[in-house]
């Protein structure tokens, strides 16, 4: 009898733990780490020696989407995926690219320019809120290009957009990741194709 009671108590405990876990899962924030691969752009290289400085604001960038009741719903970490993206596109755009830990380090290297991108704004649109059958992501960037001595060459804003349709048997997290990858590819295409058309960059290139 005692053994039976013990077994019953054990089952109740397991059920309670399971229910508590379910409750916590339902209420907790979902972490989404953006992951994907990016192709190398087919563009002509510029004969430049460029240092890249990734600000911690970019490398550790995370966006939190709140539910309508104000609780944290999704925590989207996209810093590392941005580093991977720039590590793919910059060597295809410039003759030599070196990653530096500080602007000062770049100055000492005697490079032609220092490039420092940061994310200014991140927006997520979920179908549950927009009533559209697509997941959408907008990202606004501030691109900064400096001379080796730290003087500004150009400082321009770039936006990227990505969307992916609602699909059955695909989780919200997977859809957010897919939309973010489209947005990152959009950034790569617009950045690599419009770089020399930024007026300040064009003027600076003409002086070289």
């Amino acid at each position: 009898m005692r053994r039976m009671r013990g077994s019953m108590r054990g089952r109740v405990r397991t059920a309670l733990i399971f229910m508590a876990a379910l409750y916590l899962t339902a209420c907790g924030v979902s972490n989404v780490v953006i992951e994907g691969s990016f192709p190398t752009p087919n563009i002509s290289k510029l004969p430049l020696n460029v240092a890249v400085y990734y600000d911690p604001a970019l490398t550790e960038f995370a966006y939190i989407e709140y539910s309508e009741t104000g609780t944290e719903e999704y925590n989207i970490a996209s810093g590392q995926s941005h580093i991977e993206l720039f590590s793919t596109i910059l060597p295809a755009m410039f003759d030599r690219v070196v990653v530096v830990d500080s602007i000062g380090e770049a100055e000492a290297l005697g490079v032609d320019a220092i490039f420092a991108p940061i994310i200014e704004e991140f927006q997520l649109a979920l179908p549950a809120k927009t009533k559209l059958d697509v997941y959408e992501i907008w990202i606004k960037y501030n691109m900064r290009l400096m001379k080796a001595d730290g003087d500004y060459i150009a400082d321009w804003v770039l936006t990227s957009y990505g969307k992916t349709p609602v699909e059955s048997l695909r989780s919200v997290e997977a859809a957010i990741n897919a939309a973010a990858i489209v947005a990152l590819r959009d950034l790569a295409s617009s950045f690599s194709l419009s770089f020399t058309q930024v007026p300040e960059v064009r003027d600076w290139l003409n002086t070289l």
Partner: peptide
């Protein structure tokens, strides 16, 4: 699309044949 990157992305893909004509002047494309 990956092999042609970044020329056939949603924002950069040619919308008319005139755009394709211009795109074909790029040696890599």
């Amino acid at each position: 699309v990956d092999a042609m990157f970044p020329w056939f992305e949603p924002r950069t893909a040619p919308l008319r044949t005139r755009d394709l004509e211009r795109l074909m002047t790029e040696a890599s494309v």
